[in-house]
Design a binder for these strands. Structure first.
Lengths: 153, 153
DNA sequence: ATATATTACATAGCAAGCTATGCATCTAAA
DNA sequence: TTTAGATGCATAGCTTGCTATGTAATATAT
C-alpha cells in the first residue's frame, strides 16, 4: 500500500531542503550571496586556498557542478582563482577580501534560518534530527559507492 | 563561531536530499521515471484527475515548476491532459494506462531506497526524524507565508 | 453592461544539481 | 624516452527548482 507522502523520508527531506534553500536565498539575495555558494564560502572562510577538486569533495557535489558554481562566484566577486606554479592543471581558489568582510553577516543569516527551522523542536529532537540525517547520508553514500565500484579494490 | 557543516540542519538536509535524488533517479531511469515525477505520480495514482494547480499545491512546488514537470511527463508518456469543458482555463491531468501499469514497480523502488536510507536508524529514530522534518517544513512554510503576505487579511 | 479582479496556465531566464565526455598536463611503465 | 594511464578542469546537455511576467478566461463590482 502506498506511503502517505509526509511519511516518506525521501519526500520530506526533499521538501525541507527546498524550503531551506528558498528561505536562505531570499535573505542572501540582497547581498549577492546564494545558498549554492555557502559550502564554498565556509570551506574558504579560514582564509586558506583550496583546489576545485577539494571543494567539490568537501561539499559532496560533483566536479562540474562545482566548476559552474565557482564561475558564478567569480563573476560575483566572491572568489579569486590563481594557477599553480608547479602543476599547471591545478587552480587555487580563495575568498576575495570583500567576501571575507561579509563573513559575519552571512553566518548570522544562516544561523537565523537554521534557528527558525528548528524552532519547533526541543533540544533532544534537534540532536536526533542531526544525528539521523548524518546516518542517512552515510547509508546513501555507501550504496552510491557500491554502484560506482561494484568490486571494491 | 562557525558551525561545522555536519552540524547545520540546512546543509545536512540539502545533502541528504541530493543523495536521495541520486539514488532514486539511478534506479528509476531505466524505466523512464525520475524523482521529479514522483509527487505527480503518487498524487494521480488512485486514477482520479487533478488540475495543474492542485498538483503544484500538493507537491509544494511552484506552478511554473509543475508546468515544466508535466511537459516532460507528457513527453515521456506518463500523463495525459484534457481541457475542461466548462472552464476553458482548466486542464485535467491523469495518469496514462501505461503509467498505471508500472505503479507497483515504482512503489517498490521508492520503498527500497527509503529503507536503505533509514537502515541505520532504529524505529524511534525513524519516527523522530519524520516528525522533526514535518515540524521543520511547518516552521519554514509559516515564515514563507509571512514574507508573501506581510499583513495577513 | 462594462470595467476590473482573479484565476489558470504559459513563457522567459536563471541557479544548482546531474552524467557523459573532452583536453591538457603530469606520472609511471615499457 | 616514448607510450599509457591518471589527474584536474572544462564543456555540453539535461532535470528540477526558482522568480517575474504575460495571456486568456472567468468572476465580480459598479
Amino acid at each position: 500500500m502506498p506511503l502517505k507522502r509526509t511519511q516518506s523520508a525521501g519526500y520530506m527531506t526533499n521538501w525541507a531542503a527546498r524550503l531551506f534553500a528558498r528561505a536562505i536565498d531570499q535573505k542572501l539575495k540582497p547581498m549577492g550571496m546564494s545558498s549554492g555558494y555557502l559550502p564554498v564560502f565556509f570551506a574558504l572562510a579560514d582564509g586558506t586556498a583550496r583546489t576545485q577538486k577539494q571543494l567539490a569533495l568537501g561539499a559532496g557535489i560533483e566536479q562540474p557542478t562545482m566548476a559552474a558554481t565557482l564561475n558564478r562566484m567569480e563573476r560575483d566577486g566572491w572568489i579569486e582563482r590563481e594557477k599553480d606554479g608547479e602543476d599547471r592543471r591545478i587552480t587555487h581558489i580563495r575568498l576575495s577580501a570583500a567576501a571575507r568582510d561579509k563573513a559575519q553577516d552571512i553566518q548570522a543569516i544562516v544561523n537565523q534560518v537554521n534557528e527558525t527551522a528548528l524552532s519547533g523542536l526541543n533540544s533532544l529532537e534537534q540532536r536526533v534530527l542531526l544525528d539521523a540525517l548524518g546516518k542517512v547520508t552515510m547509508a546513501l553514500t555507501r550504496t552510491e559507492e557500491n554502484q560506482k565500484h561494484p568490486v571494491p579494490k
